[in-house]
Simulated scan of single mutants.
Amino acid sequence: MLPCMSEPPTTQLAGDLRIALAKLHRRLREQTRPHDLTSAQQSVLLRLDRDGPATVSALARAEGVKPQSMRMTVASLETMRAVRGDADPNDGRQTLISLTPAFRAELTARRAAKNDWLHRALQAQLSPREHAQLARAVALLQLLADY
Rank of each mutant, 00 (worst) to 15 (best):
N90F: 12
V74E: 13
R71L: 09
V74D: 14
L21D: 00
E130A: 15
L24Y: 02
R27V: 07
R120K: 02
R61T: 08
P53R: 05
A62G: 11
A132Q: 14
E78W: 02
A22G: 09
V138L: 10
A40G: 10
R84H: 10
L99C: 11
L96A: 14
A137V: 09
S98H: 07
A22P: 03
L126C: 13
A112H: 11
F103Y: 15
G52V: 05
K114H: 10
A75D: 14
L122N: 15
R93N: 12
L107Y: 11
F103A: 11
T10H: 06
S57Y: 06
A109H: 09
A121L: 12
L37E: 00
R18Q: 15
M1P: 01
A82F: 10
P89L: 04
H25V: 01
N90S: 09
L37N: 00
L140W: 02
Q31T: 04
A58Y: 02
T11K: 06
D86G: 04
Q31V: 02
P34A: 04
A54C: 09
A113C: 08
T55M: 00
L99P: 06
K23V: 13
K23H: 11
A135P: 03
D49F: 03
A62F: 03
D51N: 06
R29S: 06
A14L: 06
P89K: 05
Q125G: 10
P53I: 02
L2I: 13
S57T: 12
A121Q: 11
T55D: 01
R104H: 10
A145G: 06
M72Q: 15
Q42H: 14
A54L: 06
L122D: 14
S127M: 04
M80A: 15
P3G: 00
L118Q: 12
R120Q: 14
L107K: 13
R120S: 09
H25W: 03
A22D: 02
L2G: 14
A58F: 04
D146G: 14
S69G: 08
T95P: 08
A135I: 11
S43Q: 09
L24F: 05
R84F: 07
D91F: 01
T100W: 07
N90M: 13
